[in-house]
Simulated assay, not measured.
Amino acid sequence: MPVISFVNSKGGVGKSTLSVHVSRALQLKGFNVLLVDSDPQASALDWSEVAEGDYFTVIGLPNASIDKEIGKLKANYDYVVIDGAAKVNKNIIGTIKASDLVVLPVRPSPVDVWATRDTVDMITDRQEITGGWPVAGFLISVAEKGTKLSTEIGAALDDMPFDTFDQVIHKKAAYPNAMAQGQTALEISKEAKEEIDSLVNEIEEFFKDGN
């Protein structure tokens, strides 16, 4: 019962969008998915209300004991996906404790990578206690289509202790437009579906490899 979280104390990097779309892509593969909204802003819960529960189960756990609560729930699902809080607090610490894989979405800017240092420190502190768990990786998100990623973003990521996903998630109107209607971009945008499916394939390979 793998637990995947999307965590970054900086807002506007697409955590909720990614959480919803990765959950949907996993569901379309036949998995039973639980999406946990740990952010007090409750963007994923808001989407679920508009969607009228037509997709997968979404619950809110905006509290520091999220790891204990998920421990009780995860046996009932194939995957648990957590939409992380947007501020450095005990919610993020609990989310990291609950996770097998932490995905850190960042905009394609060195400044955005540097801004994750507090979160990175939380993860590495946890890894020191557990012998390397959870594993974490950066994901370049909200990238402008057709823009070549700068050498500066590559250098900033190379200085971090985690690998970076190969797939880049681009800024597309299909994501917010679909979510505002209680849908996902997977139903309305071929390009968005290809990106999310590619990311999910990377995530699945991570777990298939026994990490």
Rank of each mutant, 00 (worst) to 15 (best):
Q41H: 04
S48M: 06
A44G: 05
N32K: 15
D46P: 00
P40A: 08
P62G: 02
V58T: 07
Y55H: 15
N63M: 12
N63W: 09
T57H: 14
T57S: 08
D39T: 03
G60D: 07
E49M: 09
Q41K: 01
V33K: 11
F56K: 14
N63Q: 12
L35P: 04
V50H: 08
L61T: 05
I59Q: 07
F31N: 14
A64T: 10
A42E: 03
I59K: 06
A64L: 10
V50W: 12
Y55E: 12
V58Q: 03
G30D: 06
V58K: 08
D39E: 04
E49C: 11
V33M: 13
A42P: 04
Q41L: 00
D54C: 15
V36E: 01
A64F: 10
Q41Y: 02
V50E: 12
G60H: 03
V50I: 14
T57V: 15
L61D: 01
S48H: 06
N63C: 12
L61R: 10
V50T: 13
L45E: 01
E52Y: 03
N32W: 09
D37C: 05
D46N: 13
A64N: 11
A42R: 03
V36P: 02
S38K: 06
Y55L: 14
L35H: 09
L61P: 05
D54H: 15
L61A: 12
L34I: 12
N32L: 14
Y55D: 07
I59N: 05
V50Q: 07
Q41E: 09
N63V: 09
L45C: 07
S38D: 06
G53S: 07
L34W: 14
W47Q: 05
A42Q: 02
D54Q: 15
I59F: 02
F56N: 08
F31K: 15
V33Y: 11
W47L: 04
V33R: 15
D54A: 15
S48V: 02
D37F: 05
T57C: 11
E52W: 00
N32M: 13
P62N: 06
T57A: 12
A64E: 15
V58H: 06
S38Y: 08
E49F: 12
F56Y: 14
S48D: 10
P62H: 06
F56H: 11
N32P: 07
A44N: 01
G30V: 07
S43T: 04
E52S: 14
Q41S: 08
V36L: 04
W47S: 05
L45D: 03
A51Q: 07
N32G: 10
A42T: 00
S43H: 03
I59C: 03
A44F: 02
G53K: 06
F56L: 13
A42S: 08
D37N: 09
V50N: 05
Y55T: 04
D39V: 04
W47N: 01
N63F: 09
S48W: 08
S48L: 06
L45H: 03
G30R: 03
D46G: 13
V36Q: 02
F31T: 06
N63Y: 12
S38C: 12
D37Q: 07
D37I: 03
T57R: 15
A42L: 09
E49T: 08
L35C: 13
F56D: 05
V58M: 10
V33S: 09
L35E: 10
L45V: 03
L34A: 06
S38F: 07
A44L: 05
A44P: 01
F56T: 10
L45T: 02
I59V: 10
N63G: 13
Y55C: 08
W47R: 06
E52T: 04
G60W: 00
T57Y: 13
